[in-house]
């Protein structure tokens, strides 16, 4: 019985993954990014007392989020249509888009490696992460509302 339950839940899981809406999925990942970055920025700005452990948890969450960002799965052909601000340039220049995403993930990994011990150290890592957000949105997002 237990096995059956597990099997069914696994099937259900696989089902959601297979039928998921890539536009909703990538937007959810982006929203999660924003939330984590928002938390980190409080330490950068000194709005919260620096907590190295909390910063590390946030940076690792950002890394995990970045690793989930599978360009092939999240930006399949045709997903430039619909409720999306993804620019057609993503599909015209997939190599460039991949490189931009990779630059972001590398910036996040570098921050995890650096394990910043104080606000200034975090600030030094935060700069390149923020810049890579803007760098990608500059070329690959079209504001629609």
């Amino acid at each position: 019985m237990r096995k059956l339950v597990i099997a069914i839940s696994m099937l259900a899981l696989a089902g959601t993954a297979a039928f998921a809406d890539p536009i909703a999925d990538r937007q959810a990942l982006m929203k999660e990014r924003g939330k984590i970055v928002a938390g980190l920025s409080k330490f950068v700005k000194g709005e919260e007392t620096y907590d190295a452990a909390a910063v590390m948890t946030a940076l690792k969450a950002l890394e995990a989020n970045g690793e989930k960002f599978d360009v092939e799965a999240l930006f399949p052909a045709g997903s430039d249509q619909g409720d999306t601000e993804a620019s057609p340039k993503i599909w015209e220049d997939k190599a460039g888009f991949n490189a931009a995403e990779d630059k972001y993930v590398q910036a996040v990994k570098a921050a995890v490696q650096a394990a910043p011990a104080d606000a200034d150290a975090l600030k030094a890592q935060f700069g390149p992460i923020g810049a890579s957000c803007g760098g990608c949105h500059q070329a690959y997002r079209v504001k629609k509302s």
Binding site: M30, R33, G34, K35, V37, A38, S41, G130, C133, G134, H137, Q138, Y140, R141, V142, K143
Partner: peptide
């Protein structure tokens, strides 16, 4: 960064 931490584009 916007208040909800979207980052500007274009």
């Amino acid at each position: 960064f916007t208040p909800d931490f979207d980052s500007t584009g274009g």
